[in-house]
Design a protein around this nucleic acid. Structure first.
Lengths: 212, 212
DNA sequence: GATCACACGTGATTC
DNA sequence: TGAATCACGTGTGAT
C-alpha cells in the first residue's frame, strides 16, 4: 500500500531472491551479490548470520535477566546495569558470609580448648592479629544516595562519633547494618543527603575516621 | 518517486560521510558520497544520540566485564555468558554459605541455651502522629547480652539520641541492623553491657524513646 | 513533538 | 577463505 519500508524490502529480497531492475548509480557502488541463477540480489550474504547472531544475543540477555531478582526496567541496558549491581551485592555477601563463618569457626575452636571468656579482649589486638585493614568504600546508588562500607576498629565511642558526624551533616540513613567481625566494626549503610561526589564522600569519611 | 526515495535513503545509510566531533577510525576511512547535484545528502538527526547510546552500552558492558574474574573471550556475547555462569556460581556460594552459617549458629545457640531460659517481654507503646506502632522488645540471649528490637518514628536525630544514651550507659553494640520502613526505623541489635534485668532494660529503653 | 530503545541490513575487520 | 564479531546510520514504535 504505502511505501514499502527499507527493512521489509530487504527481507523479501533475502528470502525470495528478488531482483530489482531500477538501480541507482550510488547503489551500484555497493558490493554486488548474486543468487544461484546469477541474478544480482541486494542482500549481503551475512544477513541471515547477523540475524541469528542478534537472536542469540537477545536470548542470552533474557537468561541473564532471569537470574536477577530486581529488574528496574526491561531495557537491554537495564539488564546490564542491574546485573552489575546484583553481582556487586553477591560478591559482597559472599565476602561477609565467609568472614562471619571463619569468625564463628575460630570462636568454636577457642571455646573448645579454653574457657569461654568473651568478656574482655582487646579489639585492637584482634584487629592486628587478623590483619584487617580499616577501609572506606563508597558507591553511588542513585540520586543523592550513597552506599557506604566502613571497617573500623571495634570501639563503640568511635562508632558513635562517626554516626554523630554523619548526622550533623544532614545525612539520612536509609538502611544500616553493623556487624562485629574479628575486633572490627563492619558498617554497611545506605544514606541519602546532600549531593556528594563519591570521591568527596569517601575522603570525608576517611578523614572523620582518622580524626576520631 | 518511491523508488527514488528508497535509493536515496540507502545511499545515506552507511556510505555517507559525517563530520562530527567523535569519528572512529573506521568511519574516517569511509568515503563521502554526494548526490547528483554534488550536495552531500542528509544525515539522520538521531545519529549523535544513537552513537552516545552505543557508547554508554559498551561502557556498561566493560563495567560488568570488570566484575567477572574469568573472562573466556573478549566478545560482547562472552561477557553476557560469563556473567550468567558467574552469577549462578555466586548465588550457589551465597546459598551454601548461609546454610553453613545457620548450622553453626544453631549449634552455638544450643550450647548457650543450656542455662537460663530466655525471658521475653514485648510491649506495644502508644501510637505516634504517623500512626506507627512504636515497639520495644527485649530478650536475653546470654551472659550480659540482650537482643533488642525497637520501632520508632523515622527521625535521624531521635535515632542518634537513642544510640548516644545507650552508649553513655556503657552498652556495647555487638550487632545492629537498621531498616527504614514507611516512615519508621526498625532497629534490631544485640548489645553487651552491665547485667540488666530484661524488664528493667525494656522500660529503660521505652523511657528513653518517650523522652526524646 | 521530541526522546528513547530497538531491530535492522550492511561493510569492515578479525580470526 | 569463510565464519564470526563489530560499529554504523537508519526507520519505527513507544512513551
Amino acid at each position: 500500500m504505502e511505501q514499502e519500508n527499507y527493512n521489509r524490502l530487504n527481507v523479501s529480497l533475502d528470502e525470495l531472491g528478488f531482483n530489482s531492475e531500477n538501480v541507482s548509480k550510488t547503489w551500484k557502488k555497493r558490493k554486488e551479490y548474486y543468487n544461484e541463477d546469477g541474478i544480482r540480489v541486494f542482500t549481503a550474504k551475512n544477513l541471515g548470520a547477523e540475524r541469528r547472531r542478534r537472536e542469540k544475543h537477545i536470548s542470552r540477555l533474557y537468561i541473564l535477566r532471569s537470574l536477577i531478582p530486581n529488574i528496574t526496567k526491561m531495557t537491554k541496558d537495564s539488564v546490564i546495569t542491574d546485573a552489575i549491581t546484583y553481582t556487586k551485592r553477591l560478591q559482597y555477601e559472599v565476602d561477609t558470609l565467609t568472614q562471619e563463618l571463619h569468625a564463628l569457626e575460630e570462636k568454636e575452636n577457642l571455646e573448645e580448648r579454653a574457657e569461654p571468656k568473651i568478656a574482655e579482649y582487646s579489639a585492637a589486638e584482634d584487629l592486628n592479629n587478623w590483619g584487617i585493614q580499616e577501609e572506606v568504600q563508597v558507591e553511588n546508588i542513585g540520586e543523592n544516595k550513597l552506599w557506604i562500607k566502613i571497617i573500623i576498629e571495634k570501639n563503640t565511642g568511635r562508632f558513635m562519633k562517626l554516626m554523630e558526624t554523619m548526622n550533623s551533616l544532614g545525612i539520612e540513613i536509609i538502611e544500616a547494618n553493623v556487624t562485629t567481625i574479628k575486633g572490627a566494626y563492619l558498617i554497611v549503610t545506605s544514606i541519602k543527603g546532600i549531593s556528594f561526589d563519591v570521591h568527596q564522600a569517601k575522603h570525608l569519611l576517611a578523614d572523620i575516621i582518622k580524626s576520631i
